[in-house]
Design a protein around this nucleic acid. Structure first.
Ligand code: ZN
Ligand code: ZN
Ligand code: ZN
Ligand code: ZN
Lengths: 154, 154
DNA sequence: CGTGTTATGTTATAATATAACAAAACAGGA
DNA sequence: TCCTGTTTTGTTATATTATAACATAACACG
């Protein structure tokens, strides 16, 4: 995790938003789902399902894979986390209230995944869909590379 | 597979290109690697490693996973196939001689994956990297949706 | 040939994910 | 409160995807 970043605030903020979103939607933000979301955020970066499993397991007794995957499915459906296909990992959504077409900059050095939006990108994707007569439903855009902090950039 | 498409030509063409690329690079396009590439192309669309395994298995005797994965690794390294992270599947590169920054339009109806290039997209990605002070190394861009043929478009 | 290198075979196991059914927790009305 | 249907969680088993580690075979080249 990089400096100048009060990560506790991230987590608290994410949980608050999750609570309010679930309330709005009338879906249940249960203890399990909350725990999983907390773990996702505590990790501050993409986390694997089986790592969540291990960490839950130390708390409560003997958690099994379906428990974790179901919680993750719920969080995915409600836009509270994202799945990074190139890593088989999960990461908290940094703006679940307003998530639209986002993509990820994944640093191979520190492992962090920055969630970004770009109108240019959205426009380019829309255009390319039109040009190819293709109706896009879902976009996976994951860019790996090296972040500024890890390159020692100022 | 959609109409007006002589797929045999695709396969033959892909093999020819593979042979010439491997020769240029001084790497060995062995019988196994050739078989795997053929299967990838025959399928005309993303194919899973274990499906390749099954199909090889019916030909030769008892093929094991590492055999397939190693051949796929070779083909990936040499740009002859691509891996679709969102599907855990592999697809032949449609222009291995000149592949640069491509992306995929994946139809959820017919399962075909069209490989496309777009300067706008590349530009947008480059820009977003610069803006975030991020040095991109590899881009995964996979767009799922419905293709023209499957929508019954003219 | 002989020899080092690259490729393939083989066994075992790791890592990721889901199916199917049972028990429990919960919600909302009688 | 209690009943009842629904949703969530627990549990067992298994499917799917991928790699480690070591043995053998094929090849390249002097
Ligand atoms: Zn998001
Ligand atoms: Zn970094
Ligand atoms: Zn390509
Ligand atoms: Zn289609």
């Amino acid at each position: 995790m990089h400096p100048q970043h009060e990560h506790k605030d991230c987590i608290a903020n994410a949980l608050e938003q999750a609570i309010s979103i679930c309330e709005e939607k009338g879906v249940r933000f249960t203890r399990l789902r909350r725990s999983v979301l907390e773990l996702v955020w505590e990790n501050h970066g993409p986390i694997k399902a089986y790592d969540i499993l291990k960490q839950l397991d130390s708390d409560i007794a003997s958690v099994k894979p379906p428990t974790v995957y179901r919680a993750l499915d719920f969080l995915l459906e409600n836009g509270l986390v994202h799945r990074l296909n190139s890593l088989n990992a999960f990461v908290g959504c940094s703006h679940p209230e307003a998530h639209k077409d986002c993509y990820f900059l994944i640093c191979t050095e520190c492992g962090e995944a920055m969630e970004c939006c770009s109108n240019d990108l959205v426009t380019a994707i829309t255009k390319t869909g039109q040009k190819n007569d293709f109706r896009p439903a879902h976009v996976t855009l994951e860019i790996t590379g090296e972040c500024a902090d890890c390159r020692g950039a100022i």
